[in-house]
Computed example of a mutant assay.
Amino acid sequence: MLISGKTRREILRFASDNWGMPVRTCDRLIADARQAIIQDWQIERHELLSQLLSALSVLQLRALHEGQLSIVLGCINTQARLCGLFDPPPPQPVRFANVSMEPPAASPPSGAWVRGLPHGED
């Protein structure tokens, strides 16, 4: 009932009406059920990824046999996204091996040469 989204009050009412279960017993069972749910989802990332990819593969084949090509494409895209194929590549490190720390051979222009250009005042 927890997995289907029932509240504690709804579970207590159901247990009392159907089994005559006291509130404290029901609360203890609810706590045990919550721990079981937590343990079910405490899996490694690669295990979850393999389960998701397998489920998507089954869905993809089923959709292909039924001619649901948009669902097939959605499965392919989701599988690629889960595998990180749409992620941009990591940035390449910047290497400064060819940069010289020596000052330039000539000084940069001062800007005085601009004064000698015609400015359209003629």
Rank of each mutant, 00 (worst) to 15 (best):
A15Q: 12
L64Y: 13
V58M: 05
L48N: 06
M101E: 11
T7Y: 01
E44L: 07
H119A: 09
F14N: 02
R9Y: 04
Q51S: 06
T7V: 03
I43P: 00
L64E: 13
E47R: 06
D27T: 02
G111H: 01
L12H: 00
I30C: 01
P88C: 11
R13T: 11
L53G: 08
I43G: 01
L117H: 06
A33I: 04
S100T: 13
S4G: 02
Q35P: 00
Q79W: 11
H119I: 09
A112D: 15
R81M: 15
N77R: 15
P91A: 15
D40A: 11
S16W: 03
R95E: 15
Q60W: 02
L69Y: 14
D122E: 12
A55D: 10
Q51L: 15
D122H: 11
S57A: 13
E47W: 01
A63T: 00
S57N: 11
R115C: 03
R24I: 05
P88S: 10
P109A: 01
A105S: 04
G74T: 07
S54C: 10
L85G: 02
R28C: 04
Q60D: 06
A15T: 04
R13M: 06
D17Q: 14
L29S: 02
Q35T: 09
V23S: 03
C26Y: 02
W113M: 09
P108R: 12
P88E: 12
G5I: 03
M1Y: 05
R28H: 05
T25A: 14
C26G: 05
I11Q: 00
G116H: 08
I30P: 03
E121N: 09
E102Y: 06
G67K: 10
S4F: 04
C26M: 04
I11M: 00
N18S: 01
H65L: 10
I3V: 14
S57M: 04
N18M: 13
R34P: 01
I71V: 15
A106F: 12
V72Q: 08
A15M: 14
G5F: 10
R34C: 08
H65Q: 12
L73H: 08
V114A: 10
D32H: 04
D40N: 13
P93D: 15
L73P: 04
A105F: 07
G84Y: 00
V23C: 03
H65K: 11
T78M: 13
E66D: 12
A106N: 07
R34V: 14
G120K: 01
Q35K: 11
D122Y: 09
C83D: 13
A80T: 07
I3L: 09
